[in-house]
Design a protein around this nucleic acid. Structure first.
Lengths: 189, 189
DNA sequence: GAATTCATGTAACTTGTTACATGATTTA
DNA sequence: TAAATCATGTAACAAGTTACATGAATTC
């Protein structure tokens, strides 16, 4: 139920093509929600059939014609209804491929796990560095496109991303240290 | 690709029925990976057809017969192969219903958002309290069922859950405070 | 000369969710 | 007396992933 609503929400800023939506998603909510282009095209079709979107064709030479979608009044209503229905935290389903492998860590060698933790630390730090760029983008983009009212909320999420990233790096570093101790302890036995 | 492997991994501890697996998942990896019972039965069927699991029937009166699954040698091999292939962090897909609504926060009233942040704080704190119980369960369960070698890895994940929960509560509290300031600022305009 | 960008999608497959069906036993 | 526990699933639908198809223009 969320991807279609994310699409509606983004299209409320400005009408766009499916392709535009994909690049916008990659540059905005990608840390929160990801989508494949094929999925976006499918959802656009569904939303138009339901009357929550309308499209107009902009002819092009050399390239496929653009199909530009805009949100209808009904679409706005549906979006706002969804927006107000926040999910319960405790019943939220999660899927964490990395953590799942840690759970079965006893079946991996300590060396392999140490290697993966180091990789995790490196990649999380890269992600944090990426968030610096996101900070700049939020600042400049909201200014030049008259979206100052969005800035506050986007910055909240940015801070959340930084805080989570930092705590995960800290956790992984401490875990790697503990793993070294654990490994020593097992060798003595 | 992960649920079937989680199932294989759990069945390697001890053979179980689909129903048992569901309760075990709810009590162990639920913070990492969730699954519906119908999904588990489907995956068990697929895994058995592939020869990664075998089952034997334990007849019962009054209730449907138990179908107890165990992992074959091939199943172990497949599981260990999956276990070694850690995912890249930067290409990981996320879906966060709560954060997605914050992203569109400008379309909500500040009062509504404040209310939802307070609810978030309350529920995250409940989750943290739940993790205290998990800590006890890990301690007692690993001891009495000879799974001491798992304890270290499970505790790593427990610490990760606590650290993340705490940082999210802190973030939400700071966000709620900032929202109050932001609201005042907007009223003056 | 190879990869990326722009622009549309379809098809097949895999996962995840919700609802339905059955039915005795135990606990609140 | 209503709900939860045990125990099996099926069916239908929704959502996510991967591969395929087309093809010019631009950048490396």
């Amino acid at each position: 139920m969320s991807l279609p609503n994310a699409i509606l929400g983004l299209l409320m800023y400005t009408p766009m093509t499916g392709y535009d939506l994909k690049t916008m998603i990659d540059r905005s909510i990608n840390f929160i929600w990801t989508a494949h282009l094929s999925q976006i095209y499918r959802e656009l079709g569904v939303l138009e059939e339901k009357g929550l979107l309308t499209s107009r064709i902009e002819p092009q030479e050399d390239r496929p014609d653009k199909k530009i979608y805009s949100v209808t009044e009904e679409g706005e209503k549906a979006f706002l209804q969804w927006l107000g229905k926040f999910p319960a935290i405790l019943s939220t389903s999660t899927r964490d491929e990395f953590a799942l492998r840690i759970f079965f860590g006893s079946k991996l060698s300590d060396e392999e796990l140490a290697f993966q933790l180091e990789r995790f630390i490196r990649e999380k730090k890269e992600e944090l560095a990426l968030l610096d760029t996101v900070a700049e983008i939020i600042l400049t983009q909201t200014e030049k496109s008259g979206m100052e009212s969005e800035r506050f909320y986007w910055n909240l999420l940015l801070k959340r991303g930084v805080a989570m990233g930092q705590v995960l790096v800290k956790w992984a570093e401490e875990s790697a240290a503990e793993l070294r101790e654990h490994h020593k302890g097992r060798k003595k036995e």
